[in-house]
Amino acid sequence: MIQASDLEAGLAAAPAAAEADGLAEAGTEQPLLGLLTDGVAVAPLEQLGVSRDKVLAQSADAGSPLT
């Protein structure tokens, strides 16, 4: 079972990811991408069909400034 403390690192990475992408604040993609880089969340998210590549592709399709 995933504990809340296990997810903190991925969520904490969101502001840095937004800054690296040239954004003033994190959108919905950055926390999700952070969770996909944190080992404990990767497997459950991938079992649900969520992957880093799919998030990036959807962001590009939606015109997000992320890509």
Rank of each mutant, 00 (worst) to 15 (best):
I2D: 03
I2Q: 13
I2T: 13
Q3Y: 14
A4L: 14
A4Y: 09
S5M: 14
D6A: 14
L7Q: 02
E8M: 15
E8C: 13
A9N: 09
A9W: 11
G10W: 02
L11N: 03
L11T: 03
L11A: 02
L11I: 13
L11F: 08
A12E: 07
A13T: 04
A13N: 05
A13C: 11
A13W: 00
A13E: 11
A13P: 03
A13V: 04
A14P: 01
A14W: 05
A14N: 03
P15K: 12
P15H: 12
P15I: 05
P15G: 12
P15R: 09
A17R: 04
A17Y: 06
A18F: 04
A18H: 01
A18S: 07
E19C: 09
E19P: 13
E19W: 10
A20C: 08
A20R: 11
A20V: 02
D21M: 15
D21I: 09
D21S: 15
G22M: 14
L23T: 00
L23D: 09
A24T: 14
A24N: 12
E25H: 14
A26L: 04
G27E: 12
G27D: 10
T28F: 11
T28I: 02
T28H: 01
T28V: 02
E29Y: 00
E29S: 01
E29C: 05
Q30C: 11
Q30I: 02
Q30W: 10
Q30N: 00
P31V: 07
P31D: 07
P31L: 05
L32D: 07
L32K: 01
L32P: 04
L32Q: 08
L32A: 03
L33T: 08
L33Y: 06
L33R: 00
G34N: 00
G34R: 00
G34H: 06
L35K: 11
L36W: 00
T37F: 10
D38P: 05
G39S: 14
G39V: 06
G39F: 09
V40C: 00
A41Y: 07
A41R: 08
A41G: 02
V42K: 09
P44Y: 02
P44K: 03
E46H: 12
E46T: 07
E46C: 07
Q47D: 07
Q47P: 06
Q47Y: 11
L48P: 12
L48Y: 03
L48K: 08
L48S: 00
G49P: 05
V50I: 07
V50Y: 11
S51L: 03
R52I: 09
R52M: 10
D53V: 08
K54F: 02
K54R: 09
V55H: 05
V55Y: 01
V55Q: 07
V55A: 00
L56D: 04
L56K: 05
L56P: 06
L56T: 06
A57E: 10
A57R: 08
Q58E: 15
Q58I: 03
Q58A: 14
S59T: 11
S59W: 10
S59K: 02
A60N: 05
A60K: 15
A60M: 10
A60P: 11
A60I: 05
G63N: 10
G63Y: 08
S64I: 08
P65S: 15
P65T: 15
P65M: 15
P65Q: 15
T67R: 12
T67E: 12
